[in-house]
Amino acid sequence: MIEAKDIRAGYGDGADILTGISLSADRREIVTILGPNGCGKSTLLKTIAGYVRPRAGSITFGGTDVTAVPIHEKVRHHKVGYVPQTDNVFGTLTVAENILLGARQLAKTEKEKRFAALMDQYPALAGKKTRKASALSGGERQILSLARALIAGPEILLLDEPSAGLSPLMMHEVFDAIGAIRDSEGMCILMVEQNAFEALGIADRAYVLSLGQVAMTAKASDLLEDPAMRKLYLGGEVHAE
């Protein structure tokens, strides 16, 4: 579904942050991108999403070349949903208005049907749909931004640190919701995360980045059980059994 080959990217005239990264992700799969701060995780996701144009390499979605396609066109024409890390809701709009922003291209009846389905799926939002999004907690905002991305029925979902700034309880709720999306909707989910153990708990595969390159790729379950990996990249001592 997502195929990125030999991606080199950076900001402005600065040095390359990504120095030749290749990755892939399929339908019904959660692929997580892990690594220490500054390794290029978010830049990679932004490049795949279309915020940053790669300096070299290619990106395809379902076989279609989207290397130079900006984010707004990917969302409108390539069935992509993107959930940013922070500033992910419009605080002055209500919960319902926020969600419906993601459904601008749908017919009215389809929009209403999907909105009702999302309200059933996320009862915490249903109870607050007329409230301003600025009144929601961090976890509720993250769920709201997920729901907004889902209403258009994307085939690819890009998540930038969905657990950023959340309490452990809320983090579990958000990860449960992401896992449920993969299982029920069957979409391809690419997720950048800092909380490696939580992310590996729901992911199918993972790429571990270091200094703008892929240092390791493996099944999530294998990475979780690899003591060397835990020590090197995942803060293994903390969670060692």
């Binding site: 900006p70 707004h72 993107y82 959930v83 940013p84 993601g102 291209q105």
Partner: peptide, 24 residues
């Protein structure tokens, strides 16, 4: 209008507006 809403979304959170398909 709907376009007026897009103007305000661009003002408030331009990067978020882009991620929702708005061409800034």
């Amino acid at each position: 209008s709907a376009f007026g809403l897009s103007m305000k979304l661009m003002r408030e959170e331009p990067q978020l507006a882009r991620s929702l398909g708005y061409d800034l």
